[in-house]
Simulated assay, not measured.
Amino acid sequence: MVGKARKQLQNALASAGYPSHVLVACSGGPDSLALAAIASYFARRGHVDGHPVSVAGVVVDHQLQEGSAEVASRTAAMLRELGLSPVEVRTVEVAATGFGPEAAARDARHAALETAADQLGCDAILLGHTLDDQAEQVLLGLARGSGTRSLAGMRPVRGRLLRPFLGLRRQETLEICRVEELSPWHDPSNSDPAFARSRTRVEVMPVLEEKLGPGVAESLARTAAILQQDADFLEELASETYLSLVQPMEGGIWLPEDAVRELPAALRFRVIAKAAADVGGQQPGYGRLHAAEALLRRQGSAGPVELPGHVSVFRLSLSDLEQERAVPAGAAADSVPRQASPCGKLVFRHQKPSQQ
């Protein structure tokens, strides 16, 4: 078990180009504590496949539970005993973001990890997510009706973030802790039915394993790996298409409606989402994205459709622009007959939120 975990970490570091300074993010739970123990093996050796490596540790205290500071301090002490150096505790404030407490805690944690990596000069941040976490992520994506990107789950590599244990089961990390004589902390929120992820872990996955047979988690994780390849291809193609179409304008950007309409649906929706992000918006949900795409089937100026992040998207008819230019000086704009045009622009603008 330990040998398998070492090999997975070794492969992850090799795929990242053998970073010389590595930071282990550890909550004190069995997954991340097992990862810290495996990383400490390479820290003691001082190299991975002949490439020098040092391993630091960081514990993020979210301050969301009573006694969190004590848990963080105890975890930091275990990391120091394992030989990680330096080891720091980072305390964060979890602010409401509108996307739920789990997402807010994750955002605060990742920000703290990135800052710690910068300050400690670390090239990679190791996270302890397992195959079980990946399977739960895919199930949650299915339940929410998410698209390919969400169903592709967590990536083994995303920037400096590495997840070397996505091929390990949670039970295996518990076994590693037992072998290494470590006493992990068990987060009570992991079994709290108030959280969808906890219900998936405690209630849904065991039923699926019982009714469908063993191997469900592995199948879900394999699905994520396959979809990651598809998502990467579509993402690259959508980026190239978007850059070939986008045009700047005062206060925003626009896309030629005819060209967007002719795109395959898989690209069309991604291009619209990229345009929204380009002007400062957030990833639109299924309903909002379809509402924006429906503007392509309108005639005359239409909209706006409001997207997350204070983005407005609307159709601007080319005939409207032409007729506005044709209005004689001093004449009322509505005195000139207007005709709907099948041609137009899909315009994206970021609207500053109103001050209450």
Results as ranks from 00 to 15, higher is better:
190 N>K: 14
221 A>G: 02
175 E>Y: 03
219 S>T: 12
280 G>P: 06
273 A>E: 03
163 R>F: 05
238 A>C: 04
247 Q>R: 14
223 T>S: 14
211 K>S: 08
172 E>Y: 03
218 E>G: 08
260 V>L: 11
164 P>A: 06
202 V>G: 02
261 R>E: 13
253 I>G: 06
259 A>L: 05
248 P>W: 05
191 S>F: 02
261 R>G: 11
243 L>G: 03
224 A>E: 01
239 S>T: 05
169 R>C: 11
193 P>D: 09
223 T>K: 03
170 R>S: 12
253 I>A: 10
172 E>K: 05
242 Y>W: 07
231 A>E: 15
166 L>E: 07
171 Q>C: 12
180 E>K: 11
196 A>Q: 01
225 A>R: 00
244 S>N: 12
259 A>N: 08
194 A>H: 11
252 G>T: 03
180 E>T: 03
277 A>S: 04
225 A>N: 01
224 A>C: 02
195 F>S: 09
274 K>N: 12
277 A>R: 10
231 A>S: 12
203 E>N: 05
180 E>Y: 06
239 S>I: 04
247 Q>N: 06
193 P>A: 12
263 L>A: 03
279 V>F: 05
228 Q>A: 14
273 A>D: 04
262 E>P: 04
244 S>E: 13
233 F>R: 10
283 Q>D: 15
182 L>P: 08
195 F>R: 09
166 L>F: 07
233 F>V: 07
280 G>T: 03
225 A>E: 04
170 R>P: 04
163 R>E: 09
225 A>H: 01
260 V>C: 07
209 E>C: 04
243 L>Y: 04
179 V>F: 02
231 A>T: 05
217 A>W: 08
278 D>K: 07
213 G>P: 07
212 L>S: 06
232 D>F: 09
194 A>R: 15
173 T>N: 03
170 R>C: 10
217 A>D: 11
181 E>W: 03
227 L>E: 05
283 Q>S: 14
185 W>M: 08
272 I>F: 02
232 D>W: 05
193 P>E: 09
178 R>Y: 01
249 M>C: 14
254 W>V: 06
172 E>M: 09
259 A>V: 08
164 P>Y: 10
190 N>A: 09
260 V>A: 01
225 A>G: 05
284 P>D: 15
214 P>E: 08
262 E>M: 08
211 K>C: 12
222 R>G: 14
237 L>S: 14
174 L>A: 11
195 F>W: 10
248 P>L: 11
166 L>I: 01
270 R>Q: 11
265 A>V: 13
280 G>F: 08
200 T>F: 08
283 Q>R: 12
257 E>N: 00
231 A>H: 11
235 E>A: 06
273 A>Y: 00
173 T>C: 09
251 G>T: 01
